Simulated assay, not measured.
Amino acid sequence: MALNPTLIWLLLGIGLCLIEFIVPTAFVASVMGISALIVAPLAHLIPFSLQILLWMMLSLVLVLLSRRFVRQKAAKKLDATEAETLTEIPPGKSGRVLYEGNSWAARCEDHTLAIAPHQKVYVTGRQGTTLIVMPESLIHS
């Protein structure tokens, strides 16, 4: 039994768009889903290898175009300022913090400091999907 390529692309597109609701990926999954939905009606007209290539090219172009929208949103002021480290944040490297109920990548504003797990930190900024934090002990001293 041969699978219908249009149906495969439709299911892939819908699945990727739904993943965006479960795991926020800064629109990457939804853009890839939209690309799959665009490829679906063309699936009977072009060979499978070209379908994959078209999907990858459309995804790349749409992700790059959507970055302008994501950057504008990221530049907005953050609502909350407090977070808690979930993992250690080594000096100059990233760790994880709990911020507004979600786990975020984070790094310390001072690249020479390490922050232990389960410490209260203050969010001072954001670069893409990485929060910039400072330990509470440093701010109150």
Rank of each mutant, 00 (worst) to 15 (best):
T112G: 12
E136M: 08
G95W: 00
T129W: 00
Q127V: 13
R126N: 11
M134Q: 15
V28W: 02
P117H: 01
L62S: 08
L37D: 04
H140F: 10
V121G: 01
V70S: 07
T129I: 10
E84S: 11
K76E: 14
R96M: 12
E84W: 12
R68T: 12
L58W: 02
T130S: 08
M32I: 09
G33C: 10
L53R: 08
N102C: 07
L11E: 04
G101Q: 12
V28T: 07
H140R: 14
T81I: 12
D110W: 04
I132D: 02
H44G: 14
L113G: 05
V123C: 01
K93G: 04
M56Y: 03
L10P: 02
T130E: 08
E84N: 12
S49P: 11
D110V: 04
L42F: 15
I52Y: 06
T25H: 02
E100D: 13
T124F: 01
M1G: 14
I139R: 15
Q51G: 06
L45W: 15
E84A: 09
I132T: 13
L98D: 13
P5H: 07
L18R: 03
E136I: 01
I14W: 02
I8G: 00
P47V: 09
S35F: 03
M57W: 01
T124A: 04
S59V: 00
A80L: 13
L42K: 09
G15T: 01
S59D: 03
G33A: 08
A2P: 15
M32T: 05
D79I: 12
R107L: 05
I115A: 01
L131K: 01
Y99W: 07
I19R: 00
T129P: 01
L113D: 09
L98V: 09
W9C: 03
A36S: 12
T130M: 06
L78I: 13
L45S: 15
S35M: 05
V31A: 12
N4T: 07
I139P: 07
K73S: 12
T124H: 06
V133Q: 05
L58D: 02
S30L: 13
L10D: 00
I46D: 04
T87L: 00
A105L: 14
S103E: 15
Q127E: 15
I22D: 06
N4W: 05
L138M: 13
M1F: 10
P47K: 07
P24F: 05
G13K: 06
S35I: 02
G95Y: 00
L45Y: 15
M134F: 10
V23G: 02
L50V: 08
D110H: 09
A74R: 13
S66Q: 06
I52H: 06
S103L: 10
S59G: 09
C17E: 05
P117K: 01
S137M: 03
K73C: 07
G101C: 11
M134L: 14
A106T: 07
K77C: 06
F21I: 10
A40R: 03
C108W: 00
L50Y: 14
H111S: 15
L53Q: 10
G33Q: 08
E20W: 04
I8K: 02
L131E: 03
Q72R: 15
P41K: 05
A74Q: 15
N102R: 15
R96P: 02
P5Y: 05
V23R: 08
T112M: 12
I139Y: 14
T112Y: 13
I89R: 00
V97D: 01
G125V: 04
K76N: 14
T130K: 09
A43Y: 10
